[in-house]
């Protein structure tokens, strides 16, 4: 559905945000996982035709988006990481405003807007000014406006940042409901969201795609090699992450053998693979 070929992007201040990105994405929910500064937002903006890459191209449904960006915009819904709203505009009025800009006829948007308000649970605040919305409500508004025009491609850049657990769960429900016949690219650094929602994940670190596959395939190399320890091992076993339970620390370790006597074998998670790649990146920097 969406094919990226050799996408490169470097900013004037020297930041090389995207390096030779190659991806092929099909319908469903796709996760773009990476730490802060990995290039996720740059990739999202590029895919949303907001900025052109320095090199490479990307095609949606077989048509080059660089040559005809308006073609993609007609089928695109975009929720940026940070966005503001116009003052003195109610939720309904601003949705109407954006619907008109998206080329919807009055008949179309008069049908879609109430449906979207219901989907995002904003019906009761339809007449309220969007500028008075809480963070969660504003995010839901962002999704509602992105879904105007029934887009085939939905790009969501960190949609759950700043949301409380209840709002996150509501958002997940909405995303799952709409993902059946669309390509939804979900960019986030919250691994749990990706693991729960996405069938396919691309890992982006320092502007490069480290790996891109379904979740099981990404986790497979770590099977039977993840241990949970209550004490920090002294051996050269790779510490993936540290967590606390009731104030007591525990470590997740990547090791071929049992690293400590009290180590317990765990099921590998996507998070483990993510941390492993991050540590590999740090090791590369240390060696330089």
């Amino acid at each position: 559905m969406l094919v990226l070929t050799d996408i490169n992007k470097q900013y004037p201040d020297g930041t090389h945000a995207l390096k030779q990105i190659n991806l092929e994405l099909h319908k469903g929910m796709v996760g773009l996982l990476g730490p802060n500064g990995a290039g996720k937002s740059t990739l999202m903006r590029t895919l949303a035709c907001l900025q052109a890459p320095d090199q490479g191209d990307y095609a949606f449904l077989g048509k080059s988006c660089l040559q005809d960006p308006s073609m993609l915009r007609k089928q695109l819904g975009y929720v940026p990481q940070h966005f503001g709203v116009y003052p003195n505009m109610s939720c309904e009025a601003l949705l109407t405003h954006i619907a008109v800009l998206k080329g919807l006829s009055a008949k179309q948007y008069k049908k879609q807007i109430p449906e979207l308000l219901a989907l995002t649970n904003l019906t009761s605040v339809a007449k309220r000014h969007v500028s008075t919305f809480s963070g969660g409500m504003k995010q839901r508004f962002g999704i509602a406006q992105a879904l105007l025009g029934e887009p085939k491609l939905l790009i969501m850049d960190e949609p759950t940042s700043g949301l409380d657990p209840a709002e996150r769960e509501r958002l997940h429900d909405v995303l799952v409901e709409i993902s059946a016949d669309k390509l939804i690219i979900l960019s986030t650094h919250i691994v749990e969201d990706i693991e729960n929602l996405c069938h396919h994940v691309a890992m982006l670190i320092e502007g490069q795609i480290i790996d891109s596959n379904d979740v099981e395939t990404l986790i497979a190399p770590l099977n039977n090699k993840i241990w949970l320890c209550d004490t920090l091992p002294t051996s050269h076993a790779q510490v993936l992450s540290k967590s606390y339970k009731y104030g007591k620390p525990s470590w997740r370790i990547y090791s071929e053998q049992q690293p400590t006597a009290n180590a317990r074998l765990q099921l590998a998670k996507l998070e483990d693979r993510y941390f492993l790649e991050l540590h590999k990146k740090e090791a590369r920097h240390a060696n330089k």
Binding site: R45, A48, C49, L50, S70, R73, K74, L76, Y78, P80, H82, F83, G84, V85, Y86, P87, I98, L101, K102, G103, G142, Q145
Partner: peptide, 22 residues
Amino acid sequence: FRDSTSNMMVLIDVTPVSFRVR
């Protein structure tokens, strides 16, 4: 100036209306 002052530039720019028409 509303797009920049309200931080709506991105949302408006992704719509299919071309820059010139808008």
